[in-house]
Design a protein around this nucleic acid. Structure first.
Lengths: 205, 205
DNA sequence: GTTCTTCCCTAACAATCGTTTGGTAGATTA
DNA sequence: TAATCTACCAAACGATTGTTAGGGAAGAAC
């Protein structure tokens, strides 16, 4: 048996303070960008000194990783539930979009970080789960769109990959301006977005 | 008369090398993010040492400023031309979207930088032109949408500010995946985007 | 009442950052 | 040919970065 060297909590025990600090960090990361955020700024917002953060976490990068992992885990809980319902293509799309806006509502900071940083992070081995999630995401959306085209509920004359990016982007960029507790609920925003994506903004003749 | 102290070119004379270096810097800024980009990395890509950049520019920030200013100046040349044509609301929207994709094609790196960094930069006095451009941009789009609603060519049942953000975002996020010289021309992408935004992706009954 | 654990502070560390200073090879001008 | 100018290099600067080591106060456990 080697020497235990048990000294820091890191992942074990009392997750409340840890969660608090991660929420604070996520807020600062989202507002200032990951690279522009110093650990001293995070510590300031948390009311402690920079070094004290290292009692809870072993690096700035591990905070970022845990923030993104937590978000993606919960996101896929919701997505998998929707996809498991085996709805029709249009209903699946509606449910996915609505679920997405609920996630933006719950994890606004994490979503903003994900959007800004994931492209640079994904190539790193440590953040391989980002790329994996992206593939799963693309697969779920593309197959839904393809099912819709086959069932003649979605237009067949559109480039399907372009359509995918279109729908994906229109949903997630909302995180850049959305503020929880505003005048629109996530469901209300989802309804309006869906109305635009599905039927367009032009008046029908 | 005070001593001239004329030593560096900075803005005057031979703009070719300067433009070359700015293009290189923009590429690195876009790929790695402004804060994550060191002047040494820029210099590496340009085949020189970090200090040598300061013969051409007086700071890293001034490179960023010039990149964004140049982009926005050319963007507004295009936009003002469109808005000056006094087209109908639908035609104005179509022309603005098409013009936007052309700008993405020409200034891909600058657009990507603008999207990632403008939110953090705009509050700074030095980058006040970003906020000003944003206001002009919003005004142009909102008035076009309002004209369209009044003329009954755009739907009246949608929140107009939500619609504005929707259209704006759908266009500009394309810069994050668009690659010049790909299989789609800017005009082709604009056509498909307009088709989705105007008519939706659902099949009409 | 001692010991242990939890959670933070104080103080520093090596590395890296943007930037400056002084110099110089080569072309251009006089 | 001498003088000047252009465009860079070599080497360092102070500041800031993420991170670590050692310590200490306060409560919990025994």
């Amino acid at each position: 048996m080697s020497v235990p060297t048990k000294k820091k909590p890191q992942v074990t025990a009392a997750p409340e303070r840890r969660r608090e600090l991660l929420d604070t960090a996520a807020e600062v990361f989202a507002e200032q960008g990951y690279n522009a955020t110093t650990v001293r700024k995070i510590a300031d917002h948390a009311g402690m000194l920079a070094g004290s953060l290292y009692y809870h976490f072993d690096s700035k990068e591990s905070m970022l990783e845990e923030i993104l992992r937590t978000f993606l885990d919960e996101l896929w809980d919701g997505y998998d539930a929707v996809l498991g319902d085996e709805l029709g293509p249009r209903e699946t799309l509606e449910a996915l979009v609505t679920e997405s806006f609920r996630e933006i509502d719950r994890h606004r900071a994490a979503v903003a970080i994900y959007q800004k940083e994931s492209k640079q992070l994904a190539p790193q081995e440590r953040f391989a789960f980002l790329a994996e999630s992206q593939r799963k995401f693309e697969k779920a959306w593309l197959s839904t769109l393809e099912r819709g085209v086959a069932a003649k509920v979605f237009r067949a004359d559109l480039d399907i990959r372009l359509t995918y990016r279109f729908v994906r982007d229109t949903v997630w960029v909302a995180a850049s301006w959305y503020r929880p507790g505003g005048q629109h609920s996530p469901e209300e925003i989802a309804r309006q977005y869906l109305s635009m994506v599905l039927d367009g903004i032009a008046v029908r003749e």
